[in-house]
Design a protein around this nucleic acid. Structure first.
Lengths: 200, 200
DNA sequence: GTCTATATTCCGATAGAC
DNA sequence: GTCTATCGGAATATAGAC
């Protein structure tokens, strides 16, 4: 009798250094912006030499490609989760928009830092992301106008949580409270409109 | 009899070159991001030499200070207009949030490009701006929760109009339509809640 | 007030040792 | 696979002529 104790998969784990470099790139973009995120700084933060970094990512553009690849993978996983969220798609979207600490949030914020120099690939990836969320929301709430409102609120929460964030926060200003308050208003609006034809 | 034909004010007009440089700085930040907005590029776009630029702004930081000064002045003027807006403060705020082409919008977008490297002065100026809008909105709608929702929608419109913008736009996706649709929903919500105590 | 020329630092990328 | 050393170019800022 043969017992397989551990499944030895033929796929080798991705080199740890590559992920470390990507993590450092991501964190520096978030905390210091694109201008200060030089290859030297990334290598230093990742604990490797510049030559070691260049071995994994041949150029600065390759580093950006690596980040966008990570973003796409995490975003697709998030869309799958959103579609089957027990609390409903709208609640899932609003709640996750008010936070900025999941792996997806972090890479998304980092990618937004790159959006600024009319970087077309970054723009396309983020547009596709937005489109994915929008489709799910339209299906969930029925009315495209309400779906747009929900997306706008989500964008606003995201903006507040990332770009403008960092100000003093009291207990009533935590992500959970912000999301709960605004979610209540949105559901109130959906309820008030229920039975009415979309677009009226 | 003495007739004053033209009032010769003792305050000389600000040097045109200074404003030209600030305009170029602003435009480059918006269109190419902070990384590509070098002093060389700004001088070239403004049609002056680097030495001429440095005469007006001693350093890169001084250039940023100049932009933040312009932002503060335009923002205060906007707040005054918002307070006396005939169509109401909420409509004024939502409508202006959906556009990104007023002098205030342009300098605001440019300043947002600088927000990314945890630039504390920029952060403070933008936080003060947000706070000013919020106070007016709370006074206008009564309920802090609704005021927050309105601000979130405004932030979302702003995000869509600036950061994510650039995608294909059909006729139904113009700023005016976006603002009108979402403004209708918000007023519907306010109406549905009218008479109820705030925070319920 | 605006210019040219230059000093200095730093960035991205290459070459080649280990 | 990771390192050190280094090149070419670009960025900020200074010096000084006009």
């Amino acid at each position: 009798m043969v017992v397989i104790l551990a499944t030895v998969v033929p796929v080798p784990p991705p080199p740890a250094a590559r992920d470390k470099v990507l993590d450092a790139f991501q964190q520096l973009l978030i905390e210091h912006g694109e201008r200060e995120t030089t290859l030297d700084a990334v290598a230093r933060a990742a604990g490797v030499s510049k030559g070691g970094l260049i071995y994994h990512f041949n150029s600065r553009e390759a580093l950006i490609d690596g980040l966008l690849g990570r973003l796409t993978a995490l975003a697709n996983a998030d869309l799958d989760q959103m579609r089957v969220a027990p609390e409903g798609q709208v609640a899932y979207y609003i709640r996750t928009s008010a936070r900025a600490d999941s792996p997806l949030d972090l890479v998304l914020i980092a990618a937004t830092r790159l959006l600024q120099r009319s970087h077309s690939r970054t723009r396309e990836v983020l547009a596709a992301l937005h489109d994915g969320w929008y489709r799910v929301l339209v299906e969930a709430v029925g009315d495209p106008a309400v779906a747009r409102l929900v997306m706008l609120v989500g964008d606003g929460l995201y903006y507040a949580a990332t770009l403008a964030g960092g100000g003093p926060q009291d207990a009533s200003d935590q992500p959970e409270h912000r999301a709960t308050d605004v979610l209540g208003l949105i559901q109130e609006l959906i309820h008030a409109r229920s039975g009415r034809p979309p677009g009226s």
